[in-house]
Design a protein around this nucleic acid. Structure first.
Length: 209
DNA sequence: CACCAGGCAAGTA
DNA sequence: TACTTGCATGGT
């Protein structure tokens, strides 16, 4: 994949806070739409813990409208900021000192932060060696017959982490390339003559996921 | 027009 | 535990 596509330079974002916000906004949403929402936040100088803390939730929802699910996501962003405020005194440098698994559990305790969002934050914003699993990861592996159809998030994550070194840069690139490959070649029907994952074996026809 | 996107939580049986 | 549904905009 790396040979075929080259480095993906993830995560697209200027600051760690922007990356954390993007991780929530991109839930089940095209990144293009997230970019529009983030642009609005930048224009309003809202990429700031204090600003996000003080802005009324309705106003925040208006700003992130292009990202879709804006009411849900406004609430989720507020939940995340409140978590950082409650646990780490609204201070990311304090949060960065936290043990990785403790921080992961904390993030997962926030309503609206599930495993993929938590791990995206840990890997791309906090730079911890945590492998991010997403829909494409599951789809690519299952359609190559490498894992069972019904495979839990944690099992998939363990599969990668148990066979790869704890390498933040490696996990960063691997996940980004799986997303790139997934969108290009494995969306619907198996049109994969040119897919860089030919070496992973023949691909099964698309059933559902 | 239909379909989908870098999920998650809440409700139901 | 294992489904099902709501959430919503914008590109193809």
């Amino acid at each position: 994949m790396l040979e075929y596509f080259g480095p993906q330079n993830w995560w697209p974002g200027d600051t760690d806070l922007e990356i954390m916000i993007g991780a929530v906004l991109t839930q089940n949403t095209n990144w293009q739409n997230v970019e529009k929402a983030i642009h609005n936040l930048k224009t309003g100088h809202l990429i700031s813990l204090n600003e996000l803390r003080s802005i009324p939730i309705g106003d925040l929802a208006d700003e992130i409208r292009p990202a879709g699910y804006f009411n849900v996501k406004a609430k989720r962003l507020k939940n995340l900021i409140n978590f950082i405020a409650d646990q780490y005194d609204l201070d990311l440098s304090l949060l960065r000192e936290e043990d990785t698994m403790t921080l992961r559990k904390g993030l997962l305790s926030v309503n609206g932060i599930g495993p993929e969002t938590a791990d995206s934050i840990l890997l791309y914003a906090i730079h911890r060696p945590v492998f991010v699993v997403d829909g494409y990861t599951h789809r690519i592996l299952s359609r190559h017959g490498m894992v069972a159809e019904q495979m839990a998030y944690q099992e998939l994550q363990d599969l990668f982490q148990d066979h790869l070194p704890d390498d933040t840069a490696l996990y960063n690139e691997f996940h980004a390339l799986l997303v790139k490959t997934g969108k290009r070649f494995c969306k619907k029907s198996p049109v994969c003559e040119e897919c860089p994952l030919q070496a992973w074996g023949p691909i099964k026809p698309c059933t559902d996921p």
